[in-house]
Amino acid sequence: MKTVDSAAASSQTTSFVSFIVIFAVLLVVAECLLYLVDQVQEALWFALQSRAIEGLAADVLLSVANGVMTFLAVAGLFIAIEWRQLGFSDFRKRYQEGIIFSVTALTISILVQGSAFYLLRTQDATSLWTASDLGPFLVIFPLVYLLILGFMEYWLHRALHFFDFLWRFHAIHHQIERLNAARSYSHFGQDILYIMLITIPLVLWVDAPQPHIMLVTTFYIISNYYMHSDAPALSFPAPLRHIIADNVYHHQHHTRDTRHIGKNYASFFSFFDRIFGTQYMPANGEFPETGIDGYVPLRSWRDYIFRPFRREH
């Protein structure tokens, strides 16, 4: 028995070591990619300035460029890992639709966000707090910020499932079959709702000191693409899944299995599901079939744009 227990403990230790190495490398590579995006955005800013493009037009162009480049960089990182599992084949079938719809959603939602932020600036709206106001609290601020963000996202996510009108938009995300990092898109209407109810209130609450929470911020940026990845090699060790949602955990939220519908709403901290009674803890490697039974899959880009506004789905 001692030998078996010792072997199990050794295996678990190896799993944790592998996890730490893999995700340390992922975070570093992602941070480098985001740094390159910032450099390109800075060059684009100078290019716009040289052409006397300023104000709202410059803000919107820079925001859209940053959003699209961030998506292509970060999602591309996970695509490279997933695609390797298939021997680098079937790229178009797996990723083309997701990339097109994701870029569409990003462009439209960022246009709205950029316009909203510009309007706030013209009205001299400022954050309630800044980094300099936080004092010693700055040390634990990243964790508090993520907890508040996770709590808000959890309840908005539940609302998207509860209210029929909101579900029309969220269903676009749930109808996706064979989830992967690129096929993690939502409808832009849902993204705009997040901007209005979560992003803007948090910006008005505190001017987040980004350099201070660099890696935490990076992890949150990549988490959306990571959670929808279908690469088993990227799954967390089972004990960690009780704290943070990984790709195995989130796939249960998208399952066709009616026993697990209405479970695993948390988009970052999985313990919110445990606290509010909506948790299903999956076994390692448990990637179920995803989609919505009886829901006609999207037929085209036009269908993606207009489906939530039609009576029949």
Rank of each mutant, 00 (worst) to 15 (best):
K2G: 15
V4Y: 07
A8E: 13
A9D: 08
S11N: 12
Q12Y: 11
T13D: 03
S15E: 11
F16Q: 07
I20R: 00
V21T: 09
V21F: 08
A24V: 14
L27A: 13
E31L: 14
Y35P: 07
D38Y: 12
V40E: 00
E42Y: 14
E42D: 14
F46Q: 12
L48T: 08
S50F: 10
A52N: 13
E54T: 15
A58F: 06
A58L: 08
A58D: 03
D59W: 02
D59S: 14
V60E: 03
L61E: 01
L62R: 10
V64L: 05
V64T: 00
A65M: 05
G67R: 02
G67L: 08
T70Y: 01
A73I: 07
A73M: 08
V74C: 11
V74F: 08
F78Y: 07
I79Y: 01
A80N: 10
A80C: 13
W83M: 08
G87A: 08
G87K: 04
F88P: 07
S89K: 13
F91Q: 04
K93D: 14
R94K: 13
Q96R: 14
F101D: 00
S102W: 06
L106F: 05
I108R: 03
V112Q: 03
G114S: 12
S115Y: 14
F117R: 12
Y118P: 03
Y118H: 15
L120C: 09
T130V: 10
S132H: 13
V139H: 07
P142Y: 03
Y145N: 11
L146C: 05
W155K: 00
H157Y: 09
A159P: 02
L160A: 11
L160E: 06
F162N: 02
D164L: 13
F165P: 01
L166D: 05
W167T: 06
F169N: 01
H170V: 09
H173Q: 05
I176T: 06
I176Y: 00
L179M: 12
N180L: 09
N180W: 06
A182Y: 02
A182N: 04
Y185G: 12
S186F: 13
I192R: 02
L197T: 14
L202R: 05
Q210K: 14
P211I: 12
L215R: 06
Y220N: 14
I221E: 04
I222G: 05
S223N: 14
H228L: 09
P232N: 08
S235P: 00
A238G: 06
P239L: 01
P239Y: 04
L240D: 04
L240C: 09
L240P: 05
R241W: 02
R241E: 10
I243C: 06
D246A: 00
Y249D: 06
H250A: 10
H251S: 11
T255K: 02
T258C: 08
R259Y: 07
G262N: 00
N264T: 12
N264K: 01
Y265R: 06
F268G: 10
F271Q: 00
D273S: 11
D273A: 12
R274V: 13
I275W: 03
F276V: 04
Y280I: 04
A283Q: 11
N284R: 10
G285Q: 02
F287C: 05
E289A: 15
D293N: 12
P297Y: 02
L298P: 00
I305G: 00
P308W: 05
H313Q: 10
